[in-house]
Every structure is written in C-alpha cells, then in structure tokens.
Design a protein around this nucleic acid. Structure first.
Lengths: 239, 239
DNA sequence: ATTTTCATATGACAAATGTCATATTTATAG
DNA sequence: CTATAAATATGACATTTGTCATATGAAAAT
C-alpha cells in the first residue's frame, strides 16, 4: 500500500516537471526519471508580474530559476540611473546559474518584461545533479559557454559597430528569437528605454533612429510596437 | 625491473607537470597524482615568440593550452582592420576551454604579447578529467563563470563609461594583474595600439588621453613604458 | 652610418552620439 | 471621465570620439 502511494505521488510529482518546457530545452534534459522526481519534489513555483524582480543585483540566490513562461531581462543599473540590459531570457531557460556556480551574490538583476511563471531549484539539488550526472554537467557547462561567447561578441559589436548598426542587429535578433504577432509586429514588447538599454545608447537616440528606420521603410511603427518591413536591408545595415 | 622503470618514468613525467605553475593555479589543481601522470604523458610543449599566434579565429583547436610563461591576448579582427582585445592571459591560465567545450572553432585569435611557453593538452584528456573528477569539472566551470562575469562587466563599462574612464580603469587593472618593473613602470609591455584595442577606442584617442594623463601627472610616460603616479586620482577618475 | 620603417605624438576637422528642453501621444489613477 | 503621469517624439546644441594629415622619435634593415 505504502509503495503504491509513493508510486502515485512520484508519478504526479514527475509529471509536473517531466512535461515542462524547461526540462525539454535546458541542461535539465539530461536528467533521468529518478532525478526528475527528486527535482519535482524540491522545486517551488512562483508567478512574477511584469515589472517585478526575480532577484536583484547583490542578492544571494542559492539556487537557479527555471523559466516556464514569460520573458525577463538581466540588467545592471549604472550610477547615472540607466539600466544596461545584458541579456533577455525566455521560457525554457535557466537563470542564476553563474552566481550559483561561482558562489557569489548576483551580479545582475533579473526582472520580468512580460508576466512570468518560474520555478526555483535549490543549489543542493543542482550540485547533486552536477556531481552525479556527467551529461548534465556538460550541458550546463555548454550553456554557460554559449553565454560567454555571446557576451564576447556583444562586447566586440559595442566597439566596432555604430548605434545604427547595433539597432538593426538587435531588431533582427529579437525577431529571430521571439518571433512576431499576428499583425507581424515583434512579439517581445519592449519600451524604447529598454531597447536603448540593450543596444547601449540613450533613449532619445534609440527613438530617433527608429523614426529614421520608419521613414526609410525598414520598419513600421504600429503604436509602440515595431514591425520589420525590410529584413534584407536591415541585415545589410547591421554589417 | 619493468615495474621499476615504469615507476621511474612516471616519476619523471609527473614532475614535469606537478611542479608547473599552471597545475598550481588553474582548474588542473584538482587532479590527483595518477591524473597528473596521464596529463604529463599526453601533453606537448611549445615556445611561441612575441607576435606569433597560438591559434587563429576559426581554427579547430581540439584541446586546451596551458600557459607556463609569458603573456598573450585574445582578440578579434574587425572589418576595418582593428584588433579588438577581449582578454589578456598570463602564466598559470588555460586557453581555449570555451571552444573545446562548445565543440566549436575558436571565436577569437590568441597571440603572444611577450614570448610564451605553452603546453597543449588534447581534448580527450580534458574530457576524461571532466567526467571522472568532480572537483576538476567544478573548477573548470567556475573559471568560465569568472570569464563570463568579467565579460559582462566589461560590456557594461563600454556603454556606461567614457574612453577616459575606461583608460584609467584599464591602467589600474594592468597594474593590479601584472605588477610593475623595478623602475615602477607597468610590467606588461603593450603598444598604444594594443592598449586602445583593450579599452575599445582609436589608437590616436588612446595616445592623446595618455598625454593628458601625463600632463595631469596621473601617469608618467617613460619612453613607451607607463608609470602610474597617482593611483588614487586614477581610481577616482575610473568611477 | 644612413636609410627605411614603424610607433608615438599632435593638430584640425568631421561625424556620431548624448543632453536638455519641450511637444505630443498614450496609459493610469482617482 | 477627467486629471495626472508616463512613454514617445523631435529640435537645438554640446561633447565626445573618430579620421586624416603630418611631424617627430626610435628601432630595424641595409
């Protein structure tokens, strides 16, 4: 009887995580059934409203966050009050891996750009998987390596490209990564300020260039939303 | 007899790597005696003259390089012929970890800034250690996380700080990381062009600012060498 | 020793970008 | 439904930084 109940409970627990998009897309895909059950029993779920923080710069998180749904930004506030966005994160990704591995407080703040559903996995679980599942540790490593490569390339783009080029590049990336709505506008809904934060420029410069792009018919501004009209020309501009 | 010879050979082999600075400072410190012997038997050593490349962007390296001695730069050439330096590396560090883990050709070129002594460790060895030694894999992971954090902070500095601030910051970092000669000048001997490549600006701008710093007595230019004269003021300027 | 080459230095100017002021539109609170 | 606040937009201007020209100094080659 006891065994049967445990089996049922585990079955329910596992299902919660086994079907999850994060399990399918992230390093967690390497976990076996047993590990997924362990995961399902130790995680806690949260809802985060647009604008709210998952964690702030300097906070000790002691675990990682799975993004089940929504979009978030990793950013750092500068002395002059500007928020430099380092990376956008979306469903299927993990958050807070770096600080956890380094044993350091978060270097960046994580905030929701669209309403989010996240799960928290305590550090002890992740380290257990890391030490007992080579494929998981390799996956985790590869995902951090991917972040590093992207960050290095961003760094180079910041120096070697103009703001105009970086805007064109970023619009294309947002389109690629997040897709478009039925009306062909970009699915990620960023304010001009946030977009400026990604390309690393002043909000006014960003708005001005969007206007220019609009006049050149590279894009169309539909209210606050942005529609890409000439992808080929944008690609050319980005180079 | 055979056993004795093997013992002697292993003893010699191990010594080669066991006493090495890279073994003491890098992720390799987690290796046990047996693993060090395995390492010593599979590595190959190279001398690299100042200016020469260890590997070039796009090359498949299939392993990592240990830096026994010297200083190198990781950089990427831009369309307009400028060399953006992403990171400096010095003795005790590993090189090419990211590409190896990601299974990708090198994203950056590695060149010697001062004559270097390096060892090459094949990928198969590193992966073997990664899969069989948890402390090693954790160390490797932490070192990549460290690179990621640094890269993200650099990215933010590029956007939020002026060229002047970045120059001040970089001079202080070079002093911290590489130390000074007997005559108090910076030990890393970079050309103005390379220094410009680190802070991400034009060579002329870099030279001009060094002149300004010189006039303000923040630094002193001793031929091509640089001596920090007012660290406090430089720190203030960097913020 | 002298020529040639390369790194450093500085001036003059142009281009890119940031800042501040101020509309105008859109969203939010009461 | 209006009042208020916030986001978007644009102009005018200042500042920073890059580019090109050219000079000077130092190192390398002949």
């Amino acid at each position: 009887m006891r065994i049967l109940v445990n089996f049922a409970l585990n079955y329910i627990a596992m299902n919660k995580c086994d079907q999850c998009i994060v399990r399918q897309l992230s390093s967690l895909k390497a976990l076996n059934k047993e590990e997924v059950i362990k995961l399902a029993n130790s995680k806690t779920s949260y809802s985060i409203k647009k604008g709210e923080a998952i964690f702030e710069e300097g906070e000790v998180t002691n675990g990682v966050f799975c993004i089940k749904d929504g979009v978030g930004k990793l950013s750092k506030l500068s002395a002059n009050g500007k928020d430099q966005i380092v990376k956008l994160v979306k469903s299927g990704e993990l958050l807070g891996q770096r600080s956890m591995i380094s044993n350091e407080p978060a270097n960046l703040s994580a905030k929701a750009i669209a309403d989010m559903e996240v799960c928290f996995i305590p550090k002890s679980e992740i380290l257990h998987f890391f030490n007992n599942n080579n494929q998981f540790s390799l996956n985790l490593m590869q995902s951090i390596c991917e972040d590093l490569k992207e960050s290095e390339n961003d760094k180079i783009a910041l120096v070697q490209k103009t703001v105009k080029q970086r805007l064109a590049e970023t619009l294309l990336q947002l389109h690629d990564e997040f897709g478009e709505n039925d009306d062909k506008t970009l699915k990620v809904q960023l304010t001009r300020e946030e977009l400026a934060g990604i390309i690393g420029t002043a909000t006014e410069s960003c708005i001005r260039l969007l206007s220019d792009f609009n006049k050149l018919e590279l894009i169309e501004l539909v209210g606050k939303k942005i529609m890409l009209k000439n992808v080929r020309a944008l690609k050319k501009m980005a180079e």
